[in-house]
Design a protein around this nucleic acid. Structure first.
Lengths: 259, 259
DNA sequence: GAGACTTCACCACTGTGTGGAAGGATGGCC
DNA sequence: GGCCATCCTTCCACACAGTGGTGAAGTCTC
């Protein structure tokens, strides 16, 4: 059991602390759905007995981690604190913020930092370049690892992990419709590793382009990456090597301050 | 036992699901501290046995809700999802966003929405007046209920609750150093209730002023509030009644759409 | 290199968390 | 208006998950 259906996570370790584990499952079900869910539905998705699910939700609600109305349960305000605490206490982020600022003003593009989590990446910070509008809270958004700047992270997975990753990716397609060819993909990752930065044009969002470099931590693993994005017109091919270099510098600066 | 030391929460209900309850305690300890904590310290603050605490932290770490390095444990990236899910799925927020936008451009001030949680309030959304919104670290910030716009919420607590609130407030002081006088405070709350909006000048932040109105939900309780803030010079006393009216309109608009 | 501090692994006991089933509540349909 | 289908809630007895003491292994300080 325990299969959430998304298959978006690396293997789940068996552990003691069943109830806690299950509570987190419930929370993840809620986080994944974009609208309110009814008790029965949550129980089904989490693979739990209804009574158990209800008990868990009860506690979570009492603690403000979950809210409910006539339509069912939704994530609750209490969750905000955790995020706020993370955003203010993470050394990675405090290190990255000024660097992103510099990157954005130096290049005129939008600079962002994201971090790997499971088989996806999360946007942790973003600084818009000059183009003022960039409405909304991309922070916390979950993006794929195999598209756009995600490749900078995929390129630095160790082989075993990469296999596992590709295995669960098989049925994905790029935004323009083309299917992902395994060999091409591996070749590109190799190139990224050699060059030290990744680039993408219209992969995740049509008309957009991006360049990204991995931030390697003390262990030498790449769990985060810096990125600049802009309209394809603003990132002509000949500008890419220069941007790549600048991103590597930025990544290094972040790593040095954070770890 | 169970006393976290902060006394910042209303009475904790006794419950089944001990382990989950304790896990949340641990998370709250981490959320409250602005730097990494060691295992022993967390155990102490949460009032738990070290072994227990370690088991909990182990699970949380495996699930990305907690991170750790040589200095101890910190909140983890996983927490971001919850917040993102809340910010995108909350009907209150989707209802409020456009209203805040309007408020900000109509008044030229900064408009924000916050919600009550325990004995404090949390900033949920903020739209800066003229300058297009920079990204919002303030989101998730925890502010007092008895200062500035918090009074709009305090004014609508029921008497029993208000008593409890005042009891745990006794040793607080205003930003300018003056102590809170209970009778004055109650009188002000009464005025706020009658007028429908609250105002403050230099209470929480010197030189700043604010006007706020409560958003009442379906049950008639005020759990959220809208607010505009600006320099004292931008909010002269004669402008306040007009602003108050506008805020009440905004609050009503939000309530209608959200509930 | 001794001392003080951590964190970690182990294990026997007991009380917590479990899930099935039965009782209410609600809503849609004929 | 009555019937059926869903969903939510409450209750209970059992099993096993969670507990916390203890001692070993690790790490930093002076």
């Amino acid at each position: 059991m325990a299969e959430a259906g998304k298959a978006a996570e690396p293997a789940k370790a068996a552990t003691s602390m069943r109830s806690l584990e299950r509570a987190i499952d419930v929370l993840e079900v809620l986080d994944a759905s974009h609208h309110a869910l009814r008790l029965t539905e949550i129980a089904r998705r989490a693979g739990l007995a209804v009574a158990t699910t209800q008990r868990i939700l009860g506690v979570l609600e009492a603690r403000g981690r979950v809210e409910r109305d006539a339509n069912g349960y939704r994530p609750g305000v209490g969750l905000i604190f955790g995020a706020h605490a993370y955003l203010t206490s993470s050394p990675l982020l405090t290190a990255a913020r000024p660097v992103l600022q510099d990157l954005a003003s130096a290049t005129g593009l939008t600079a962002s930092l994201f971090k790997r989590l499971g088989w996806s990446r999360v946007v942790l910070a973003r600084v818009a370049g000059d183009s003022p509008l960039r409405y909304e809270l991309p922070i916390g958004e979950r993006l794929p690892l195999h598209l756009g700047a995600g490749k900078a992270l995929a390129a630095h997975m160790d082989p075993a992990e990469l296999d596992e990753f590709l295995a669960q990716l098989d049925d994905h397609t790029l935004a323009d419709g083309t299917t992902l060819d395994r060999d091409d993909f591996l070749a590109e990752l190799k190139l990224i590793r050699e060059r030290g930065y990744s680039q993408a044009r219209g992969e995740r969002e049509p008309g957009m382009a991006s360049v990204a470099a991995p931030v390697v931590d003390a262990d030498g693993t790449a769990t985060a990456a810096v990125q600049v994005t802009g309209a394809q017109a603003d990132i002509p091919t000949e500008r890419i090597p220069e941007l790549g270099l600048e991103l590597q510098r930025a990544a290094l600066a972040i790593a040095r301050r954070a770890y």
